[in-house]
Design a binder for these strands. Structure first.
Lengths: 123, 123
DNA sequence: CCCCTTTTAGGATTCATTCCTAAACTATTG
DNA sequence: CAATAGTTTAGGAATGAATCCTAAAAGGGG
């Protein structure tokens, strides 16, 4: 685990925010100005591959990263893009998997809404 | 509705495949060789905006387009990227929305698996 | 320390998608 | 029809997230 990787990982663990690679890059550079953008992307990829963090693909926006290791749904604001974690009621997706008759290796569930802040700003 | 837009729309309606913009572009050009790539993207965007088709954001791959107007889950092969429509058991997501206590404007649910063809090819 | 492997910085490159502009259509109206 | 005003297109340039490349630096095990 290099200093660069540790730094990137620490930034993700430090807060529940679901940050983009660019945001992580900026935060990391405050500590280590020589850090290269490519290093951030590569290490994020490795952390994802090793199951230490999760990558969230966003619609028409850069991917975000989640410190939570377990699969879980997300609530996404359609206006500002903010992402919150949700708790999946136990076994919610079982009926779907059962109906399929074949194993599912993972899932991605996003619910869209307008967050309170944006709803207020729109009025 | 211009000829270009109609052609793009017809291609999407013609088959249940979930095609990428590039695939649609290639198919459309077989009929109208002068068609520009930008025209495909712009019209896909308009069709999505008007609710005639849906856009599926894929992980680490170009977006795909779905002729089905109603929100529904998808089954995605992790290896080859093939996408199938699924039928969502009535009210499956209600508990989640109820738990939230605020309106949800839409959802995106993808289940990942290895499709039979890829599973066979791997052996 | 020394050798070998891995990782990095920095920048070039890729690729999906969007943007730009002049030309080609489409309507509408007189 | 013909003039005019508003859209849409073709074609290519531009953008932006993410990946790739290469020589130099850093690990790390003995």
């Amino acid at each position: 685990m290099t200093r660069q990787r540790q730094l990137i990982y620490d930034i993700i663990l430090a807060a529940p925010e679901h940050r983009t690679a660019e945001e992580i890059y900026d935060l990391a550079r405050a500590e280590m100005p020589s850090l290269a953008r490519g290093t951030v992307y590569r290490n994020l990829g490795l952390l994802v591959r090793d199951g230490q963090i999760r990558k969230l693909e966003m619609a028409d926006a850069p991917a975000r990263y989640d410190r939570e290791r377990e699969a879980h749904p997300h609530l996404v604001c359609q206006r500002c893009g903010r992402v919150e974690d949700l708790v999946l009621p136990e076994g919610l997706l079982d009926p779907l998997e059962k109906g399929l008759g074949e194993p599912v290796t993972g899932y991605d569930l996003k619910l869209y809404h307008i967050c309170p802040a944006c709803r207020k700003a729109a009025n």
